[in-house]
Design a protein around this nucleic acid. Structure first.
Lengths: 215, 215
DNA sequence: TTCATTATATACCGATAAGTATGAAATGAA
DNA sequence: TTCATTTCATACTTATCGGTATATAATGAA
């Protein structure tokens, strides 16, 4: 796979900036095409998204897709990257909340906001990609699980800090709480995928917070 | 589609019992074959399970599958029926617990037991089938959502009763609690699909119960 | 035995999947 | 202009999908 030349993603360690290309100029914007691909993966899942559907949504031809993004799997990874930076950025700020309960509230509300957008698919791309593809590309599943694990680690670290600050509910360990909160968020994604309304999920967030000891 | 004669599933309203057939006798046990099919659907999801994989696991040929079960979708529905009667039977007894908290505990533990079997796939067939197939056979998704809704209705009814008995946590409505509990169980299924260990899920159940007000 | 009936095995069908070969078109460099 | 380079458009490849046609084998009934 040759990703040199004027390819969109500049190989690591190339001293020569690849913005000035020599041959025929590309007629589409890779960033825009990738955003369109993300929407398709988000709606259909990895296996459910066919190359034909992707190219149509991206407004490019099949060989252009392969030349620019490598193959379906590589395209999906790049879509995942975009999803993380654009949609999961709320996680970082959520972890900066002053209390453990505040972290939970920000995470739940952030998750709600993504999954109930009127203009975007319902549900969570990550949850879809681990569940849907129990068979499929195992590497896809592993990739998503790896990213999820790193996110969980950050949450765990935050709750460890909370424990030191005496900020956790009685008798609950940081890892247990992190796992619990992740689970609720993943359950929320399942609800959203199933077509749950924004009101339903709003109420779900409220209920979860109501169950959280020590308002 | 002709399902008469000695077919396994006797058409409704046939006065003539179909157990005594006339032609060549079937060489496999439909119930056993269906159980094998369930395992495949459970591991792979509806779309992920190919007819070839199904027939191999069922130990029958392709035309036998179609003759006996109709088609892939009909086979899946029958597998769902089997899943409900064999794997989801714990729901019924769970609802008979004396307190709302007892209902939750039985549901969570029952769910745990299914999803952590050593001999069977991890995760929940129902959750897989709604998430995985956001694209795929919409009718499959709708079917599973319909069954889930009926199960949710039963849970809601039980929590309404609990409310009358003054058995609900303060300030929490029956529908909110039912939705919350369903969500946690669905999140558990996501965790299980992702390979979470039995210990992890045990702890998750404990944490969820610890969050439940009023021991 | 003869025949209608049902199940089996094999080989096939059209559709679609992911991925690619090939030649024309558009650029910068020489 | 000439040429190496890169993109684009069309058409193709191989594999697999769900589903079926067809012929043969095994049974009960007449």
């Amino acid at each position: 796979m040759d990703l040199c030349g004027s390819s969109y993603y500049i190989p690591i360690g190339m001293e020569q900036v690849a913005t000035t290309s020599r041959g025929r100029p590309r007629e589409f914007d890779p960033a825009q095409a990738l955003a369109a691909a993300l929407q398709v993966f988000w709606r259909r899942g990895y296996e459910g998204a066919s190359i034909s559907e992707l190219t149509e949504a991206m407004g490019i031809t099949r060989p252009s897709l392969y030349a620019c993004f490598g193959n379906k799997e590589a395209l999906f990874r790049q879509a995942l990257d975009l999803y993380e930076t654009e949609k999961l950025c709320y996680v970082k700020t959520a972890l900066e909340a002053p209390t453990a309960r505040g972290v939970a509230e920000r995470l739940l509300r952030g998750s709600l906001a993504i999954q109930c957008s009127d203009s975007e698919p319902q549900g969570c791309l990550g949850v879809m990609s681990t569940i849907a593809g129990v068979t499929e590309a195992d590497c896809i599943r592993d990739e998503v699980l790896k990213r999820r694990a790193s996110s969980n680690a950050a949450l765990l670290a935050r709750f460890c800090q909370a424990q030191e600050e005496g900020d956790l509910p009685d008798g609950i360990e940081p890892d247990a709480l992190a796992c619990y909160l992740s689970t609720v968020m993943q359950g929320m994604a399942v609800q959203a995928s199933g077509g749950a309304s924004r009101d339903t999920l709003e109420k779900l967030v409220q209920t979860t917070l109501a169950m959280w000891p020590g308002r």
